Computed example of a mutant assay.
Amino acid sequence: MAIGSGLGAQIGIAPESSYGTFVAPSKFIEFTKESLALKKTTAQSSGIAAGRLMALSSRRVVTRREAQGTLEMEVTNKGMGLPLQTLMGTTVTPVQQGVTTAYLQTHTLASVAGKSLTIQKGVPLTTGVVTDKTFIGCKITSGEFSCGVGEMLTASFEIDGKDVDESQTLAAASYAAMSPFHFGQMALKTGAYGAETALDGIRKVSVKIERPQDVERFYANQAALKREPIENDQVKITGSLESDYVATTLDDLHTSDGGTSLVWEFIGPIIASTYAETFRITLPVVKLDEGPPVVDGFGVVKPTFNFTALYDLTNLPKIEYISTDVTL
Score class of each variant (00 low, 15 high):
Thr63Ile: 12
Gly137Phe: 04
Asp132Met: 12
Leu117Asn: 06
Cys138Thr: 03
Cys147Ile: 10
Phe31Val: 10
Gln120Cys: 00
Thr91Gln: 12
His107Lys: 01
Met73Ser: 15
Gly137Tyr: 08
Arg60Lys: 13
Thr100Ala: 10
Lys133Cys: 01
Leu53Ala: 13
Thr42Leu: 15
Gln44Ser: 11
Leu117Phe: 04
Thr70Arg: 06
Glu151Phe: 01
Gln44Ile: 12
Val99Cys: 00
Glu158Asn: 13
Gly79Lys: 11
Val75Gly: 03
Gln85Met: 10
Thr108Asp: 09
Thr108Ser: 12
Gly81Tyr: 15
Tyr103Phe: 15
Lys78Trp: 09
Val95Cys: 00
Val149Asp: 13
Ser46Glu: 14
Ser142Trp: 15
Glu158Ile: 02
Pro83Met: 08
Ser111Asp: 08
Gly143Asn: 01
Leu87Lys: 03
Gln85Trp: 03
Ile159Val: 11
Val61Ser: 09
Gly79Phe: 08
Glu34Gln: 14
Gly81Ser: 15
Cys138Glu: 06
Val95Trp: 01
Ala67Arg: 01
Gly69Lys: 01
Leu71Asp: 02
Val62Ile: 11
Phe145Gln: 09
Ala102His: 05
Leu36Lys: 10
Phe31Lys: 01
Thr32Asn: 09
Gln105Asp: 13
Met54Gln: 12
Arg64Gln: 14
Thr101Leu: 12
Ala110Asn: 12
Ala110Phe: 15
Ala110Tyr: 10
Leu109Cys: 04
Thr100Lys: 03
Thr108Phe: 04
Ser46Pro: 00
Gln68Lys: 09
Gln96Gly: 04
Glu74Trp: 08
Ala55Tyr: 14
Val92Leu: 04
Phe135Cys: 06
Gly128Val: 02
Val92Glu: 00
Ala55Gly: 13
Met80Lys: 02
Thr93Arg: 09
Ile48Val: 13
Gly161Tyr: 01
Gly161Asp: 03
Glu72Ala: 10
Ala102Ser: 11
Ser35Ala: 07
Lys139Tyr: 05
Gly98Ala: 05
Lys39Thr: 14
Ile48Asp: 15
Ala155Phe: 07
